[in-house]
């Protein structure tokens, strides 16, 4: 029971984190004409954040140890 609640809380936290990562104002911090690894900053940032959110979701849904 405890474990299920923990998994649920992790998913909700991931959702909230995603909402912040994908929106203004955090987005505007990276919205500038500079490059990272030869890739425009905003492009790299969004994909990085996206991978992070998916990884967190996978962890929250698959982790059994609680």
């Amino acid at each position: 029971m405890q474990r299920r609640i923990l998994g649920r809380d992790r998913l909700i936290a991931t959702f909230l984190a995603g909402c912040v990562l994908f929106n203004y104002p955090l987005l505007s911090v990276f919205d500038r004409p500079s490059e990272i690894f030869d890739i425009p900053m905003i492009f790299a940032y969004i994909f990085f954040a996206w991978i992070l959110v998916i990884a967190l979701m996978a962890w929250a849904s698959e982790a059994r140890s609680g």
Binding site: R8, L11, I12, F15, G18, W50, M57
Partner: peptide, 16 residues
């Protein structure tokens, strides 16, 4: 991109 970010976010709540 936002058209695919929205579904990603909502799937975090999909379990509920």
């Amino acid at each position: 991109l936002p058209v695919y970010l929205g579904p990603t976010l909502v799937m975090a709540l999909g379990w509920f």
